[in-house]
Each structure stands twice: as C-alpha cells, then as structure tokens.
Design a protein around this nucleic acid. Structure first.
Length: 412
RNA sequence: GCGGGUGUAGCUCAGUUGGUUAGAGCGCCAGUUUGUGGUACUGGAUGUCGGCGGUUCGAUUCCGCUCACUCGCCCCA
C-alpha cells in the first residue's frame, strides 16, 4: 500500500470536479431555502450510540460499516454514516422542540466502510432535508415536492423515477410483519441463504431480494397494503393524492422497503438505471418515533438524503463560471498587479500571470478562457493609457487608465 | 464481506509469443514570431510498465501474494 495513494474509497475533488459538486449542492440548498428550510451544520462525528441506537442494532450500516474509534479519553466515537441521526440528536440537545415545525437542510461528508464501486465511496457526500414536528401527510407531500424540484433543476427529471410505498404505522407494521413472516416461513427451505437471514432479522427486506427464486416466492406474498390500519391507509392516500395534484409522477412499489429501522409510513426513492447497481439517487421517508427512541419528546419527522457524487454523475453540464479579465504587463509587473487590484475591488474577476513574455501571457489568457485582456504596454503608459483587447472578437482599443473600470464595466 | 475483470507517461491507450536505449495521440515545455492568444509547423521533457516476492542467464511480459480501480452480489445516497 502506497501512502501516497488516497485512502481506499476516498477521492480528491480537483477544481473542475469541485465546481460540479458545489453546483449540485447549491442547487439543492437554493431550492430548500425557497421551501423555507434553513441550514443546520452538525459535527461529522458523534458518540457511537447516536447511530447504533437509532439506525437499528441489526442494520448493516451499524453492524459492519461504521468508522468507529475510541478517542483519547476513551469515548467511543463514530464518523457519521448518514445525516438524520445527528440532526435528531441536535434537535434534542438544543431543545428545538420549542420551535416546531422545523425545516432543516444539511450537506457534507458521510462515512461508510463498504466495498467501493462506481457511485459508492467510503467518504461520500450528501445533501438532505428534515422536516420535524408535522404529523400531517402534507409534510410528506411538500418534502417530496422539494426533492422533485431539486432533481428537476439539476436537469434530471427525465432520468429518474419516483417509487413510493407506505410502511404503515406501528400497528400496521407489526401486523404485516407477522403475516409476512408466516407466509415466508412456509418457503424457508427454498429461500436463498441471504433471505433466510433476512427472514430472521428484518423480514421486510426479503421483499426486495434480487434472487430469482426469492422473487417467485415474493410474488405470492401478502402485501403491506392489506395489513394497513384504516388511518395508515388514509394517510398514504393523502400523500398519493397530493403528489398527483402537484403533478409529480410516481409509481407505487409495494415491495419498496427501507434499510434503516426508524422509518414508518411514507418511504420513497428516486432511482435511475444509469448508474448500474447504485440506482438510488435520493431516498427518504417518515420517522415519527425516532426522536422519542433517542430520548426526546416524541416528535414526528420526515426527510430525505441524496448522494452528491451520484447526482453529479448524472448531471450533463454545469453552468460555466465567470470569465476573467487578464492583465498583461509589458514591463512593470507590480504596476499591473496594482491595476488588477483596482479591478477586483470593482468586483471583477482578474487573472494575472506571474511570468512570461506577451505571447505566453496571451496563451494563458486563452487557457483560462478570459473575456478581455488589459495590455499595459510602454507606449500606452507614456500616454496614461492601456489597451483593452476583446479576446472573442480579436479587436482592441486604447482607453485612459484612469477610467479603465468604467470601460470594462460597459463591455462586460 | 463474497465472486469476476483491469492496472504501461499528467490523460486515453498501443506494445513486448521473456532478451540490450518501452511507444502513439492529447496535454506540457521551448522555438518559428525580442508588443498579441485560440490555427499550423519544428524540437524537447516525462515512466520505479501498480507494489512485493518467486521461476529464469534475463521478467514490464510467466506464477503467487498484495494494493487500487471496476462489474455483479450484499447494502445503500
């Protein structure tokens, strides 16, 4: 192992990648703000129990994917594998039950010790939202609408598909779990080994098994929708009606389940076929019992998270950045830097080479995609002037140095 | 964590049926043009042939291990 390689599953974002990454992040944040969300920034590590108690002791994330370590005082800490648990913890720590409903947006790195693949990293980045304190299914509709808005503004509306399901309330889930387990147990011997394990630990997961034999068995399985209590059924109907009224396309997938234990009622996923095995691009659901489970006052919540790397791979092109102005000195480089400073003070983006003759500096201007070059030659200097060259048109004009900002301002 | 594929210059890739100085295109640097770019032409630099070990007179080429990436499973954003 070479120590000059990045750690497995981590990645450097060079300026071009970074521009794309930030753009995705900013589009999401800007949309969230329009829906009334504010940003929350929580630590990237927490006490281990923040995650182990909320995500489910048996979930894969907790049992084998967390970066957990003892710090110098012996506390067990964990690099966050997802964002919701930390937001829930912050909600309790800060007594935010006083200010409901609460709309929070977050972004940043997450860590999971998985086997890396395309679209699956050990340090990856998410944007996400949480809406806390609203019992009504209208919250579900609005939060999904925001997700759809974000994806649309990233130009991905045609590339993703919204799948929706309900996991019901606690009573519905308990009832369904029983009937499903009873059904699957009859086929125990024919199930795949993975699914036999799932049957014991989290039977709902058998539903989305990819094993051929399992799928046949699952086809005949009882559906969640048959076990729903009347109120859970009505809740889900309001969500689907709401999405229909807002013109957001979706398909109900009765086999859609969630990996993390805290979900109930609405579960949804935006998926794509363009990323191989990593088809989920944005996913979320409702978690009414999470905060109570963590020891806070029972506060319903719903949210989603999206993987920035996965979104970035789907995005065709990001808007170009600002084109700079290049200042090219023929003689006194310090004088040029002073002029560059003047232009920057006036709000302009200015590139200034550090060396080279005129030809070199012009070539550099081209490479940084400069819009104009300000040429500071000795001839012009003697007249108190400077030349502005239009790099697209190839034309140039001499203007007084004193009014350079004004001239450039007109041209830009 | 399990199974398959790949690993040669900054990038994309060719090549060596095991044999002396390992190639192309793009990019980079310099020049044709000592005050003018994006084109063209000329020249130049750059590789522990992923790493370690083995077989061999000799390995970038064969074998083993390892690391990384990648595809599928698992899981998930």
């Amino acid at each position: 192992m070479s120590s000059l390689q990045p750690v497995r599953g981590t990645h450097d974002l060079l300026p071009d990648d970074s521009r794309r990454h930030r753009w995705v992040e900013e589009v999401a944040f800007a949309a969230a703000k329009r829906y009334g969300f504010g940003e929350i920034v929580t630590p990237i590590f927490e006490f281990t129990e923040v995650f182990s108690r909320t995500l489910g002791e048996t979930s894969d994330v907790v049992t084998k994917e967390m970066y957990t370590f003892a710090d110098r005082s012996g506390d067990s800490l964990t690099l966050r594998p997802e964002g919701t648990a930390g937001v829930a913890r912050a909600f309790i720590s800060n007594g935010l039950a006083q200010s409901l409903p609460l709309k929070l947006f977050y972004r940043g790195p997450m860590f999971r010790h998985e086997r890396p693949q395309k679209g699956r990293l050990r340090q990856f980045h998410q944007v996400g939202v949480e809406l806390l304190g609203v019992e009504s299914p209208l919250a579900d509709v609005e939060v999904i609408a925001l997700a759809w808005r974000v994806l649309s503004e990233l130009g991905l509306a045609g590339k993703v598909r919204l799948e929706l399901n309900t996991l019901g309330d606690a009573d519905s889930r308990a009832a369904y779990r029983d009937t499903l387990t009873a059904y699957l147990s009859d086929f125990r011997a024919s199930l795949s080994e993975d699914s036999r394990n799932r049957l014991d630990r989290n039977p709902l997961r058998v539903l989305d098994s990819k094993d051929e034999g399992d799928r046949k068995i699952v086809e005949g399985a009882p559906l969640m929708s048959d076990s729903l209590t009347p109120s859970a059924r009505e809740f889900f109907a309001t969500v689907t009606d709401g999405l229909t009224q807002l013109g957001i396309p979706f398909v109900v997938n009765p086999k859609l389940v969630r990996g993390l234990d805290y979900y109930c009622h609405t579960a949804f996923e935006f998926t794509t076929t363009a990323l191989g095995a990593q088809g989920t691009v944005l996913a979320g659901g409702r978690y009414d019992e999470l905060i109570a489970q963590m020891g806070g006052v029972r506060t319903p919540g719903i949210g989603w998270a999206a993987g920035i790397e996965r979104l970035s791979m789907l995005v065709d092109q990001v808007p170009a950045g600002v084109r700079p102005i290049t200042v090219i000195p023929m003689g006194d480089a310090l004088r040029a830097m002073a002029v560059a400073e003047r232009l920057r003070r006036a709000g302009m983006t200015v590139d200034l080479g550090y060396s080279g003759n005129m030809k070199k500096r012009m070539a550099r201007a081209d490479k940084v995609n400069a819009r104009f070059a300000v040429i500071m030659g000795e001839d012009e200097a003697s007249r108190g002037a400077v030349t502005i060259r239009d790099l697209d048109g190839g034309t140039q004009d001499e203007v007084p140095l004193a009014s350079l900002e004004e001239h450039l301002g007109r041209l830009l």
